[in-house]
Design a protein around this nucleic acid. Sequence first.
RNA 1: GCGGGUGUAGCUCAGUUGGUUAGAGCGCGGGUUUGUGGUACCUGAGGUCGCCGGUUCGAAGCCGGUCACUCGCCCCA
Length: 416
Amino acid sequence: MDKLRTVRGVHDTLPEVLDKHNKVIDKGLKISNQYCYSQIETPIFEFSEIFIKPLGKSSDIVTKENYIFKDRSDDELMLRPEGTSGVVRAFLNAGLIQEVPQRFSYFGPMFRYERPQKGRLRQFKQFGIECLGLSNPMADVEVISVGYDYLQELGLINSLTLKINTLGDEESRLNYRKVLIEYLNDYKSNLSEDSVKRLSQNPLRILDSKNQNDQKILIKAPNILDYLNQESKDRFEKVTEGLEALGIDYYIDKNLVRGLDYYCHTAFEFITEKLGAQGTVLAGGRYDGLSKMLGGPDIPGVGWAAGVERLSLMVESDFSNKPDVVLLGVSEEYNTSLLYIMKSLVKSGLKVEIFYTGSMSKKFKRANKINASFAIILGEEEIKNKVIKLKNLFSGSEELIRLETAIETIKNFSNN
RNA sequence: GCGGGUGUAGCUCAGUUGGUUAGAGCGCGGGUUUGUGGUACCUGAGGUCGCCGGUUCGAAGCCGGUCACUCGCCCCA
């Protein structure tokens, strides 16, 4: 039995759960399509630089969560840990910079070698959108708005809150970084071990430390919003004004920083209390530098990604695969005829299941169990008279009628 | 990668201070009903007690390791 298991953090998805995933994805495709985002699909692995350069060499995703391997041509490849880099690479590759803006949606599996938890898997699905070629702050608002509508459509918006922040442009960030380091250096001996490490590598990430002592120190830390240059400040104001104009509630979390190098300006997260430690359900931001990091021209972009499994955990399921009609023969010798009948029913658009084995009693019990509405019964009498017996499983009434008549009856019923 | 919890039948769980053939409910199979269901009753199958090792006359229960899940940290969707 032991060898039959899946590898750690990688799960089978059984029909009932997969149905939820698909609904989550379908809603995303539908909403984003209305906003004229077109679906794109990119490979689940790429040359590893495609991810390493934009995400940052020191990022956790690259240093300890990567699935990097060499193929038989000795190329260093990486299973994708996120979708944005691949989409931008594909966009550049296809020469679509001639026609900006471009709006894309995508979904598919991502891979991160992390310690599994509820809502955190090593193979998980993301649905995301990317808007490329627009530096206008209204594009940020548009993208957040698509996310908002999406979560609303899923019926989840009331259990979520939107946090936003700005990381500013490069100049603002460098200025802020300098004062932050100066401030934190005074408390270096009191900071958590992780934060001391980050002080030299990626000081901004100290801001979202959950360590209580770190938090205390951070209360009086300089605020990034005070170190934005005029341009970055104006930009952020336009974004928040835009959200207000659309009636999208948000709160500014000055400590919200994204872990990936490619982010700048707007960063946002929709979070919930309902999933424990993995509360981020949809998150993204602006990544104007990404295209250049990949070796392309300077193309601005904004986007977000949503965790399909996490959203599914919050979504109600009404999965069923119940047939409109079940077919059962008095004995096994009628199964061939039933298969023939099945074809006509399927062609009429009905869902059908045949019960091949068991006694009549067993077959009816099974029909009840799966909640079928009708049964078509075939036996000696029916064959002789070239009819079928149609039984309404709710009322219990039966009639001997022609197959065509039965199809009409069933169709009328299931259309109501 | 770090720390805590859990691991008995397909599912939810009992299993008394270590002591014969490890239990229940639900579900599953067969039957009461050889052309008729949802109820009821009868009956059957299914467990190397996560895995490996140790302690013991004897381990599902104690000890060590390991694997998986879970909660938190880290990080993120």
